[in-house]
Design a protein around this nucleic acid. Sequence first.
DNA 1: GTCTATAATTAGATAGAC
DNA 2: GTCTATCTAATTATAGAC
Lengths: 209, 209
Amino acid sequence: MPADLTVTTNIDSLKKVHSRSKRDQIVQAAIKVFLENGYKATSMNRVAQEAGVIKATIYSHFKDKEQLFIAIIEELTVKKIDLNYEDLDPIMALSPDQFIDLISSKFSVLMNDPQYHRLFRLMVGESERFPELATIYVKTVILRGMDLATQYFDHHPELRIEDSAAMAHICAGSFVSLMAWQQVLGGNKLRPLEASRVKNMLRALICER
Amino acid sequence: MPADLTVTTNIDSLKKVHSRSKRDQIVQAAIKVFLENGYKATSMNRVAQEAGVIKATIYSHFKDKEQLFIAIIEELTVKKIDLNYEDLDPIMALSPDQFIDLISSKFSVLMNDPQYHRLFRLMVGESERFPELATIYVKTVILRGMDLATQYFDHHPELRIEDSAAMAHICAGSFVSLMAWQQVLGGNKLRPLEASRVKNMLRALICER
DNA sequence: GTCTATAATTAGATAGAC
DNA sequence: GTCTATCTAATTATAGAC
């Protein structure tokens, strides 16, 4: 094995590392480990191993474990899930049928995304230890979706919805709680309930009045 | 200080302890500490301190931390929350208005019980580490409530509910998810939504068709 | 069953060389 | 910024006296 080639490679990788990516490596590894194990059960050693760096490197990027955790939660909410509806008009123009289909399909994605189930476990599980993070989640994810649905019902007086915000909550809450007890808590193995049945029931409640 | 008196007292307390209560002391202390801190962040030292016993005593009653955790979850679900509706007839005889009031009042208790919020955090947060416990929770708590509501809608064809189970889920899920994002995640500080608004909206959806 | 004492491991975090 | 090596504190769990 040629020794100088090995040395060159090592120098190369060391140089490249400085460019930018080490921090991203750490964040991506931390996302994986925190989502799998929760806050307390995640060790900095495990994150370092997963990121392919040494533990001290993490501490040169993040003050402590708590700051690293805050960083990955913001990455997962503000930067990723954050729902930005710039163009509201096409959504407001949907028929009630189409609108129910839209939010149903949005939630179907979450229903089938194990990583989102883990984020849900993490947010709920750590909401007492990190109330500020729960607040970020409520603002960037929950209220955005709620606002959209509320506006839709406001724009459709022909549906005779007495309380748009309450109706928005019932729609969103029905899907979220379905994901919670079916996927997160494993109820689908005991008594499966299809999202389509919830969708059709909601449609009937809203449209057939 | 009279030495023999002290000895007598020690013997007394030792004898009394055998009677029964030490295990209960441990379980009650463990419930408090686990609910406050979650599984991983709970130390056996802390439980022992809270129970007023020494750590080794816990290990003489429970094989390890995991078995203690399983014991307290069963205490909190099977033995406590377990909903036993022996007499279904009076419930089935309720008017839709009264029935909505009933389940709304049931959930209002949970909405205002911080200990239940902590149990919710714990169940969801640890549902990947302890899927069997999540299953117990689904069986003893969720499915019981769901079955009751499903039966009610089955007994009331005049409501023209096409899918009783889906409707039961929408009712229960609306209240549970309300508790989740308002109380557990702290959304009530950002945008309060009263349970009564959800109740009234549900009533309108069910009754005014 | 209960306590004292301790073993064995692992955690978060840092000092210092480069 | 990165790595080697290490410190300190806390953890789960147990052995042995009573």
